[in-house]
Amino acid sequence: MSSAGARIAITASGVSRHFGELAAVSGVDLSIARGEIFGLVGPDGAGKTTLMRMLAGVLRPDAGSITLDGIDVLADPEAVKPRLSYMPQRFGLYEDLTVAENIFFYAELFGGAPAERRARTAELLEAAGMAPFRRRLAGQLSGGMKQKLGLVCALIHQPSVLLLDEPTTGVDPVSRRDFWAILYNLRESGVTIMFSTAYMDEAERCSRLALMHAGKVRLCDTPARLKQAMPGVLLAVSAPDPRAVRAALAEAPGVLGVLLKGDHVNLRADSTARAGEFAAILGARGIAYTAITPEAPGIEDVFVALTGAQAAS
């Protein structure tokens, strides 16, 4: 293994997978360094789950190659499994077993000394804020608790690569905070984390991220550079009725894109100098607004600019 190879945790090249006529994933190339928190961002149906499953070795690609920690996943999927933890999108634990029983089961499947297992179980449950729920059946946990239990089970054997498929979907903000605290701690110890999400705000937490749309990775870079790569500038128009603003300005000259953001509208324009023209159009149509100000683009803006699609927010 070359020294460059040793620093790379996950590579995918030309990975494709079809389901009948549908190309779920087509020609994806990725290279993820050890210790990265890598995000896979895209709307539902973009192919994120299919790609994650192929990386985890539970689904075979039609074409392409995948390596994890330098091991060829397609040639020897079993060799990577001890180093890997995969948390599927659908809750994959046993609802008729308790929290402690689920953890014990996964710990035993991966081996390891009993004393170590006990210490690690206690530590992870503590970090997840789940220590009081050891004896509760997994089926009786809340959505956020279930996801945290999934993470605890995934981490019980100290994997070097962690693959999380939409781990925070349906998770309350408090549990999400615990979740991210655990992930950041892991990164300190050199674990490579790849996760998929449809939440754009979570994408900002990644060291790098890939924007996925219709089975392809459209862009892959750090969040900061992705934002710089967005064509045009962003103007935020705050208004009591943002929908009216969107309707009025969508076709205006200089507007490249419009994104509704709750109490305001993000206009992507060719120049900040257009602010005056937009104010004039709104005034002429009698649409009330409070301010038009330049805004730093978020990942969602970049994503919409690149794909024309609006993801979940």
Binding site: G57, V58, E78, K81, S85, P88, R90, G92, Y106
Partner: peptide
């Protein structure tokens, strides 16, 4: 539960 189970050794 099979999806997670087959991702183990």
């Amino acid at each position: 539960t099979m999806e997670q189970l087959i991702s183990t050794p």
